[in-house]
Structure formats: C-alpha cells, structure tokens
C-alpha cells in the first residue's frame, strides 16, 4: 500500500511504466475511494497521484478545439464562463454530478476512464465528439470517445496510458440537450440519461445507464438525420430497442428506462411546447 507522487506528467508516465501498468492512476478519487476502508483488495495496490499535476489542470483553447486537461474538475469548468458559454452541456452535466464536494474533486477524464455505464460526464462529451488524448512512455494516441469503450467497464486505454487531455471540437450547435433522470433532483446516480446535439457534423444522441457502456444511439441519429416523422414518444421505441439494452437493477427497471428515454427524448426534440 503505497503512493507515488510524480512531479510532472512525464514522470507520471515513467512511474506507470515502471510499475508495469499496475499502479492505479488516482485523480479526484470520487469513484476509487468510495468505501475505502472496505476495499481490501485495493489496499495492497500502488496509487499514482495525479491530482497535483498542474499541467493536467489546464483548460486551453486552440482555433478548432477546447482542450480540457486530464485533471480538469467539474468545478473548474463550472467556474469558467467561456467554457460554459461555448459548451453549455458541460455546465448542465457538471452541475448534476454529485454536489459541490464531488464537483470539486471529480474530473472529466476520470469519469471517462472509470468506464461506468452510468457516467454523467461522458454523454455530453461524446455528444460534442470529444477525442481522448492518451499518453505513455511509448508515445501518444488519440481515440474518439465514441469508440473508446469496448464493453462493460472495458475500454481502449491501456494500463500504461494516462489521459493527457480531452479535446472538444469547436462547432456551432443548433441543438444541445442533456437530461439526467435520477432518483432525486440532486446528488444521485443516474437511472438513465442522454445528451443530444446537432451541428454541421450531424446528429449525436448519446445515452447512459441504458447499455453496458455509455453509447451513441446510431439508429436514433439516423432517424433524425433522415427526418423520419416522429409524432409520439412511442415512435422512437423501435430505434431505442435497436440502440440500447437497458437492464433491471437496484436503481430502476428496463421498462422504465426505455419508456422514459423515449418520452424525455421526444419532449426534448420534437414537442412543440417547451
């Protein structure tokens, strides 16, 4: 049971490589440290603390993208007007991740690599076509977030890689929607949620807690692209059944998830009255 304190990202990569990918990168700790005293299997591990690496905490802009460093917290983005104005869903989702205490520690990148199907930060990033920038002693790699997950808790990040940044292309969006449906209004784990955007790049509809991974709903996107007539929430159901496979679990039921997905999506995108 020990901790490694790298002084910069390069050293962090070296430490991770030296551990043969066994060290556990730790940023905000809002997932990894839940019930810490009972996590016996984790107590023997080596943790690589990323929470103090200044270069990961940077929010930068390029001509074509917003670049969130791998250690940027929700709270940082909530306090950054330029980010909230350009990517309003980051504010909307960020405010719904836990409450202030979690927002202050939790990071966007951590949410991605925790690989939970219920991740609240991932749908909006994916709906903005985010690209994950990974780095290791072996070099750099970029993976579109929509191709990042392979299955339940499975992802394309290799154990020796760290998230250097998450890059969001700057686009003009005429639709930006995010819904989180949880058991209560604040500080709750999502029963189902989605983000949807439309830009010159087309439609993006991303669902969480509806499948083994956060995922794009390509059939729904296709319907929207083709302008298929949607008059009632039920008209979305065939596509939803194709795109996602919700389950019954401790937090909700498959039936509720599907039905409410169709209804909230319908009202968000098609209802005249808003």
């Amino acid at each position: 049971m020990t901790m490694l304190f790298p002084s910069d990202l390069e050293e962090a990569c070296e430490m991770l490589a030296a551990s043969d990918g066994k060290a556990v990168p730790l940023a905000g700790g809002t997932d990894l440290l839940v019930h810490w005293p009972q996590r016996f299997e984790d107590h023997g591990r080596t943790f690589l603390d990323l929470s103090q690496l200044a270069e990961l905490r940077a929010i930068r802009w390029s001509d074509s993208a917003l670049i969130l460093g791998g250690g940027v917290t929700y709270w940082q983005t909530l306090g950054d007007r330029a980010v909230c104005d350009a990517f309003p869903l980051l504010e909307k989702a960020g405010r719904q991740v836990g409450a202030v205490q979690i927002q202050a520690r939790g990071t966007w990148a951590g949410n991605i690599v925790n690989a939970s199907p219920a991740a609240d930060g991932v749908p909006v990033l994916m709906a903005y076509d985010a690209v994950v920038e990974l780095v290791s002693t072996q070099g750099e790699e970029e993976i579109p977030l929509s191709e990042f997950y392979l299955g339940y808790k499975q992802m394309r990040r290799r154990p020796n890689q760290l998230v250097r940044a998450v890059r969001l292309p700057r686009r003009r969006h005429d639709v930006e929607v995010f819904e989180k449906i949880g058991p209560r209004r604040a500080q709750a784990i999502t029963k189902l949620g989605f983000a949807a955007t439309h830009s010159a790049a087309g439609w993006r509809v991303v669902a969480n807690s509806m499948a083994p991974t956060v995922c794009r709903c390509r059939t729904l996107e296709g319907m929207l692209e083709h302008g298929s007539p949607i008059r009632r929430p039920e008209d979305l159901m065939p596509a939803i059944r194709q795109d996602v496979s919700p389950i019954d679990d401790i937090r909700s039921t498959a039936q509720y998830r599907q039905k409410v997905f169709s209804r909230t999506l319908f009202h968000a995108l098609f209802s005249d009255e808003k």
Binding site: G29, W36, D49, S51, R105
Partner: peptide, 10 residues
C-alpha cells in the same frame, strides 16, 4: 470536498 474521498497524500 469530502474528506472521506481523499487520501492524505493527495
């Protein structure tokens, strides 16, 4: 922040 979710090394 929640001090139950922070290791003191952090």
């Amino acid at each position: 922040v929640n001090s139950c979710l922070i290791l003191v090394g952090q």
